[in-house]
């Protein structure tokens, strides 16, 4: 019998702790498949964040560091400077990267650090129970803005990709989504390009992946995918903001 599908070697056999309908699992798999396709699994060192993907070190089948909240880009810098021939990546959520870790993400881009960041944006703090993130949309309810986020009180949601694209050291910046199979395929392509960019030594690369949080959004998984498309994409437009040719 012909084998039509095999799980990537880039993931361990450990069952993930992610909630039903959460897209972290898809994104993990995309990253792992890309690492395998690029034949760098034995050479990769990943950095897990604090947040829902805190246990990513148990799922990726590569050497991993668990960083403190927001500091993954700094940890990755230390790794890459010590091991310049390894492929180094961080996997971070929006509370981790866009709130507490803004200094680290800006400066890893500013130095043009040859690492890749997978930035999972689901517009909320998941692990801690649905608090408002810098990426939470106007009107979106969260446990620390129960009537919905207001501009007057909390400002407008932060567009990380657009911000990082202004930095010369950021060689590759792209925003993708995983709410349907077409977009998932595009996301994988972007992730692959980002790692290739690192391997070629072009500079810092980041892929922002719009993601769902059915549990904390309080919406069923399939509805969440629709909500993402209807609400997040208009504010966080998909597309490439920077590629090595432009940088």
């Amino acid at each position: 019998m012909a084998i039509v599908f095999e799980k990537t070697k880039g993931l361990t056999d450990k069952e993930t702790h992610y909630c039903p309908g959460c897209t972290h699992g898809i994104i993990h798999r995309l990253v792992a498949e890309v690492l395998e396709e690029l034949d760098v699994l034995g050479n990769a060192i990943g950095v897990a964040p604090v947040g829902c993907s805190v246990l990513a070190y148990d799922y990726f089948n590569v050497d991993m560091h668990e960083a403190s909240h927001g500091r993954a880009p700094a940890v990755a810098t230390g790794i890459k400077r010590a091991m310049p021939n390894n492929v180094v990546f961080t996997y971070q959520g929006d509370g981790d990267l866009a709130s507490i870790g803004t200094a680290e993400i800006v400066h890893v881009a500013h130095r043009g650090e040859k690492i890749t960041t997978i930035f999972v944006n689901n517009a909320i703090y998941g692990m801690t129970g649905g608090q408002m993130a810098p990426t939470t949309l106007i009107g979106q309810k969260a446990t620390t803005c129960q009537d919905g986020r207001s501009k007057a009180h909390s400002g407008m949601p932060l567009r990380v990709s657009e911000m990082l694209a202004t930095i010369d050291g950021a060689a590759f910046v792209e925003r993708v989504s995983v709410h349907n199979p077409v977009e998932i395929r595009k996301a994988k392509k972007a992730i692959k390009k980002a790692f290739e960019c690192q391997i070629k030594g072009e500079g810092f690369s980041i892929v922002e992946v719009l993601s769902t949080c059915p549990t904390n959004w309080g919406i069923a998984p399939t509805e969440s995918l629709k909500w993402l498309e209807a609400n997040m994409i208009p504010y966080y437009p998909l597309g490439n903001f920077r590629t090595p040719e432009e940088a």
Partner: peptide
């Protein structure tokens, strides 16, 4: 060797954490 001036002390010690792990 390599010297990096970090963006903050917080980042510097986390770079140490990364390198030390290697």
């Amino acid at each position: 060797g390599v010297f990096v001036q970090a963006e903050s002390e917080v980042a510097a010690i986390n770079m140490v954490y990364g390198a030390a792990g290697c």
